[in-house]
Structure formats: C-alpha cells, structure tokens
Design a protein around this nucleic acid. Structure first.
Lengths: 197, 197
DNA sequence: TCATTTCTGTAGTAGTCGCTAAATAATGAT
DNA sequence: ATCATTATTTAGCGACTACTACAGAAATGA
C-alpha cells in the first residue's frame, strides 16, 4: 500500500502507528468536535506541525483513526455456520469490546458524529456509511438464512437486521453510561430471544 | 412556579416559549457542542444579550431546552394495563416520535452528549441521568409484571429493561441515519418478539 | 414631564479553534 | 564540509468561541 520513501532528510522522531493509536483513542472517547488539536497534542506528545506534516488535517486524522478503529476494534459477522450463532457471537463480542478495560467504552462508529454542526457534516458521512454497511451485512446474512431454511419463510430480514443493529448501538450508549460487561452480555442474551422460531 | 415580576421597565419583545422551542430544536438537531451561540441567534432571531438576559448561559439554555424536550416530546411508560402492551406502545410511540416530520430526527436524550470534551462533561450528566431513569422505570415495570405473574418467575427484568432501552437508543441512531417511520415500526415489532413467553 | 426600570443592539472582550510560516535541527548525498 | 531534504519547534495567524460593557430605546410609576 504505502510506499516507503527513500529516507532522505531528518527522520521522524515518533512511531506513526503509536501516534495514530493515541489519536484514535482520543477521538473514540471524546468524539470529533470534543477533541481539539490541543487534546491531540497532549495525547500524542507531538506538536501540531508534526501531526499536520504526517497526516494533513484534523479531518483526515479523524478519518484515518476511524479506519484504524474499524480494522482493529471492529466486529465482523462470521460468514460460515448458522446465522443464529453468527448473530449471537456478534452481540456477545460487541458486549465484550464495548466494555474492554484500558479502552474507551462503547463503539466509535455507533456513537460517532450523531450531532454535528453543519460545517462538519462531511465528517459524519463515513461513520454513517459504516453503520449502514453493518446493517446491510446483517440483513444479507439473515436473507440467506431465510432462503436456506434456517429462518422461517416470511421472516422480515430487514426489520430483524435493524433490531440487532439497534441492540449494538444501544449497547454502545449504555457502555458509555457505565454498564458493566456482565450487564451488556445479559442484554445480548435477552436480545437473542427475538430470534424467530 | 415562575413568579411574574410586576411589569416595570421595557417589556420583552419576544415570546419566551417560542424562543425556547427554537433553541430546543437547534440543540436537538446539532447537539450541545455543535450548536454555537451564533446558531442560536440565527434560530431565534435574537441577539446574544437578549438570550443571556432571559436565560443566563449556553449551559443553562441547554438544560432548560432539555427539560422542555423531556416534558413535551418525551415518552412515558403507561402505568396501567399489561406491561407487555405498555412496552409495546412505548416502542411504537418512540418510532413515531423519532420520525416526526417537522422535528429533528431521533431522541434528544438518547443521543445527547455521548462524546464531549472534558470541559463540558457537566452538561452530559443530566441526559445521562435521564437515560438511567428511563432504564430504571422500564425495569421496575417489568419487575412488577414478574411479581404479578404476567412474566414468568426467573425473568431477568434488568436485562430485559436494558434490551428495550437499547432498542430505543438504537432507533434514535437509525432515525438520525435516515430510517423511515415504517422501518422503525418494523424494528419495534421485531423487538417485541423478545418478550418472554 | 421626569426619573426609574428593563430590554435591545452595537461593539467589543479574552480565550480557543484549526492551522501554518519561518527558523532550526537532523539526516543522506555529494 | 556543504548542499538538499525532511522534521521539529517557536510563534503566531485569522476566525470563531461564549460572553458582556455600554449606550440607547421603550416601557413603567411618580
């Protein structure tokens, strides 16, 4: 992907990956507008020009951090096996991830950029698309389960997908509000009772 | 509640209630940090000194608007009748309210102040408590339903309450993401399948 | 009419926002 | 050593933030 430039000139004094990790945590915890460049300086130990030199702008920094979050802390639906187990695992994994000690609570995507000033609306587009893709992924999985007979014909796959998506998003809110891992797991268990039979 | 001051001096040139309504909509749509005083001036047609004279500060203005939202656009659990119907109505009413045309989408409380800078954390306290109280209210209603035999003994009322709370919160996120009223109602229907039997 | 009270608009405050020009430092190439 | 290139630091940019001193306007009671 990334071309390693032949190292001419003064080398970077920081590990770009570690810095991006710190940036991600800051945005994860305080959101886009709640995280100032001064906050990022404090979180990374770098000065603004270094951040801007390495990444470009606060907006790009946020997007990069968001992609990193998705790839390192995101949850994906297991593509094989029964759909019911895939969904169940998905919910329990979310419960665990949203309550991971040493990491900010909740999901960076679920609660990202829900309320923004008009100027920064461009920032909200990407997380909104991520949420949309998650819903679509769940729905597709459920549709397949219907055609394969795991779910009864006539099951409203779209509504069911929205339900499980809502459960994830609500778990994120409750994690931020201080719900424990045990409570989130109980929530996941209760949600699985909505599985059609 | 409010003492009407004996009207000496120049009277207000604006309807305080209408102004507070406009302020509420602005905060509802753009959140606390996403709404600047300049935004509020544009939304109300007033200048800052009038707003500050009538209310006090942006923080007080937000709290006042939030209380107004809760009393005028909030949903309460019907205290009588079967718990199942109360919860069901609660979900459908939320689906309708979150997709009311002419009003901002989603719930001002569910998605309020989830990610804030450390300085404004005081603002997040009140909506967080409101969410907590909603959860507690649902749980109490379910507990009663267990003791009255409407729900099977051994039902995890706490987990079930968290589930329905999460559904509300997730519906709010999806409403903001553009879900239609019909889709939200379908979500509510799917959620009610989790009701123990 | 006059003084008093209260509100409104003008015009600003100090502080923070995201961002960057310019100087300095550290490296590889010659 | 000297140059070219890149990174970091200092210092500060204009724009915006929440907020307010002040003066004028509009109502009141005396």
């Amino acid at each position: 992907m990334e071309m390693r430039k032949p190292s001419r000139g003064r080398p970077r004094s920081f590990d770009e990956d570690a810095v991006l990790d710190a940036v991600m945590r800051a945005f994860w915890e305080h959101g886009y507008e709640g995280t100032s460049v001064a906050t990022l300086e404090a979180a990374t130990g770098l000065k603004a020009p270094s951040l801007y030199g390495a990444f470009g702008s606060k907006e790009v920094l946020y997007r990069t951090a968001l992609e990193r979050y998705a790839s390192e802390h995101g949850t994906v639906l297991r593509p094989d096996g029964p759909a019911r187990e895939a969904i169940s695992e998905f919910l329990y994994e979310a419960a665990d991830r949203f309550s991971e000690s040493g990491l900010p609570p909740g999901c960076m995507v679920s609660t990202a950029a829900l309320a923004l000033g008009t100027a920064q609306r461009a920032v909200a587009t990407r997380p909104a698309r991520m949420r949309s893709e998650t819903l679509a992924g769940i729905e597709q999985r459920l549709r397949t389960a219907v055609t394969e007979g795991e779910l009864p014909a006539g099951t409203d796959a779209g509504a069911l997908a929205r339900l499980f998506g809502a459960v994830i998003q609500g778990m994120s809110v409750q994690a931020i509000d201080g719900a424990t891992r045990q409570e989130l797991r109980g929530l996941a268990t209760a949600a699985m009772a909505a599985w059609p039979r």
